[in-house]
Simulated scan of single mutants.
Amino acid sequence: MLKIGCHLSNSKGFRNMGIEALKIGGNTFQFFTRNPRGSKAKAINEEDVAEFLKLAKENNFVKILGHAPYTLNACSADENTRIFAKEVMEDDLARMEYIPNNFYNFHPGSHVKQGVEVGIKYISDMLNKVLKPDQTTTVLLETMAGKGTEIGRTFEELREILNRVELSDKMGVCMDTCHVHDAGYDIVNDLDGVLEKFDNVIGLNRLCAIHLNDSMNTLESHKDRHAKIGEGFIGLEAITNIINHPKLKNIPFFLETPNELDGYAREIALLKSIYK
C-alpha cells in the first residue's frame, strides 16, 4: 500500500482534513500547526479531534505530519527569535499530543553568519529543553536545500544535531526530494548511493517521512523551488524509483507540490499507478 498524502489547510479542523485526504485518494496528510508565517494557533477542538481519530481508524490512515511555521528559527542570531522558536515548539508538541503517535516536522533554521557549529548548538539546546520523555510525537529534522546559511544541507549537519539531543529516541528525519536534489545529492542518477550515504551518516531507521516534490532547478542549485511531479529536473522516472525503492516504499510520502486539491488528486492517482 502506498502511504501518500499532501499538504492540507487546517482552517476547518482535523476531521475536514481527513475527509479531504480521502476525497483525493490519500491515507495521510500534512498540515501547519499554526499560521505558517506568524505565531497564532487555533484552539484545539476536542470534539473535532475525536471525530478525526475515529475517521482515521476506520479508513486505515497512516501517521500524519504536523509542520512547524516557517517563522521558527531555533538558531537565529537574535535571542528573541530563539525564545519564540522554543515557545512555539513547546506549545506545538503539547498540542500534537491530542493526536498522539504522529510526526512533527521543522526546518532546522539559518545560522545567519554565526557559523554552522553555533547554529547546531542552538538547535540541539532548544530540543533538549522542549522534548519530554513521555511524549508520543516524533520530531523530524527536515533536509534542506542549502539556501543562504540554512543548516541541514548535509546529512552530517543533521547527524550532529541528533548526536547532541539527549532524548534522541524522540527524533527522526524527513527527507525532502527537492531539497536533497538542490543540496547536491544525486537522487536521479545515484539513488542507491544517496541512501547508502544517508544510512552510513544518519541511519535509515531515522528516516520517518518523505516530502515528495520535483524541483524547478538543477542538481546542487541550492534554490528550493518545488515543481509538480514529473515536471522538473528530478523527473517521473526518478520519482518512480523513489516510491518503489525497497528501503523507501513503506515510508509515508507527503506532496508539497504547487497544486490545489484537484492537482493533488491527479498526482496521487499517478503515483498509485506507478507504485508496484
Results as ranks from 00 to 15, higher is better:
266 R>G: 13
11 S>R: 14
220 E>L: 12
242 I>F: 00
108 P>Y: 00
140 L>W: 04
71 T>Y: 11
31 F>G: 02
83 I>T: 15
228 K>R: 14
108 P>A: 02
35 N>Q: 09
100 P>S: 03
103 F>R: 03
3 K>H: 15
108 P>H: 01
143 T>R: 09
213 N>Y: 08
174 C>Y: 02
143 T>F: 05
47 E>M: 11
241 N>R: 13
41 A>K: 11
10 N>S: 15
135 Q>K: 06
89 M>F: 07
190 D>F: 01
170 K>M: 09
256 E>R: 11
266 R>F: 12
3 K>N: 15
245 H>G: 04
185 Y>V: 07
171 M>H: 04
245 H>A: 06
240 T>S: 11
223 K>T: 12
4 I>M: 00
6 C>L: 00
18 G>L: 03
263 G>R: 01
134 D>T: 12
154 T>H: 02
159 R>E: 04
165 V>K: 01
210 I>N: 02
242 I>C: 06
118 V>P: 09
237 E>I: 07
170 K>Y: 13
158 L>K: 08
234 I>Y: 04
276 K>G: 10
201 V>T: 07
183 A>D: 02
28 T>D: 00
190 D>H: 00
13 G>D: 05
221 S>H: 08
260 E>N: 15
135 Q>H: 12
64 I>N: 06
139 V>N: 05
219 L>S: 08
29 F>T: 04
271 L>A: 06
203 G>L: 00
187 I>H: 05
